[in-house]
């Protein structure tokens, strides 16, 4: 059986620094996989390589059985790879609703394709429930630039979901959220359709253990360990790595 996403031997160098050094990652349809590791381990770089915004010097990325190494981020998004960024990225002068509409446009297919405005209306129908799920209904008409940090992050999650992802890349979705917002986020991610695969980068291990089926630990651009949350929790290697990181 082949995976939905298969990254093989991925290496990315920035000058003399190896941000990623021969990393393998395989994610199946609907799998919830977490990526953890200390600061600078290469987690965001790996998401960039998968999302298409960084090109690895070595290695291959296959998605849905096809080599997507030459595709840019837009083409990969249209194939079903959607992401949220470590620093929330939204369109500041557009309202929250418009943000979600724009994100939904490339993937919605209106019933009457030739009808002017049909695509936009279809996207609009999608935006309301998504904003509601993220608890953003009250600020739907507010320009995204005026939203609080946590709200912007939630908005970006709504945008990523609006793209109807098959693989959702989440770069520290809980960072900067209040306890209530984190609770809502966990609920939302647990309620995602089982077909959606998730690659979650997160520093909060309680969330990682709650949300993921499998975990990879990165350190200095290399895979330190991989396994189920329980295996990772008890792995002496991982404990050691984090102890070093904090010291």
């Amino acid at each position: 059986m082949t995976g939905l996403l298969e990254a093989r031997e991925v290496s990315v160098r920035y000058g003399s620094l190896a941000a990623l050094d021969g990393v393998d990652l395989c994610i199946h349809d609907g799998q919830r996989h977490a990526l953890i590791g200390p600061n600078g381990a290469g987690k965001t770089t790996l998401l960039n390589v998968i999302g298409g915004s960084a090109r690895p010097q070595r290695g291959t990325v296959r998605f849905d059985g096809r080599d997507v190494g030459r595709l840019g981020p837009a083409a990969r998004a249209r194939r079903g790879i959607n992401r949220i960024h470590q620093r929330p990225a939204v369109f500041p002068t557009l309202t929250a609703t418009e943000n979600v509409v724009v994100a939904a446009l490339p993937r919605v297919i209106p019933r009457r394709r030739w009808w002017p405005g049909g695509r936009r209306r279809a996207a609009q129908h999608l935006a309301g429930p998504l904003l509601d799920q993220m608890g953003l209904t009250a600020v739907a008409a507010v320009p995204a630039g005026h939203l609080a940090h946590g709200q912007r992050r939630q908005l970006e999650i709504a945008m990523a979901l609006a793209g109807r992802p098959r693989l959702l890349l989440l770069d520290e979705p809980a960072a900067g959220l209040s306890a209530i917002e984190v609770g809502r986020l966990v609920e939302l991610l647990q309620a995602l359709p089982r077909a959606v695969a998730v690659l979650l980068v997160e520093h909060r291990l309680d969330l990682v253990y709650a949300l993921s089926d499998t975990v990879t630990v990165l350190r200095d651009g290399q895979t330190l360990a991989a396994g189920t949350p329980d295996e990772i929790r008890t792995s002496p290697l991982v404990r050691q790595a984090y102890a070093d990181g904090v010291a």
Binding site: P73, N82, A89, V102
Partner: peptide, 8 residues
């Protein structure tokens, strides 16, 4: 960049 990441 965000627009691209959404597939546009």
């Amino acid at each position: 960049t965000r627009l691209r990441a959404s597939g546009h």
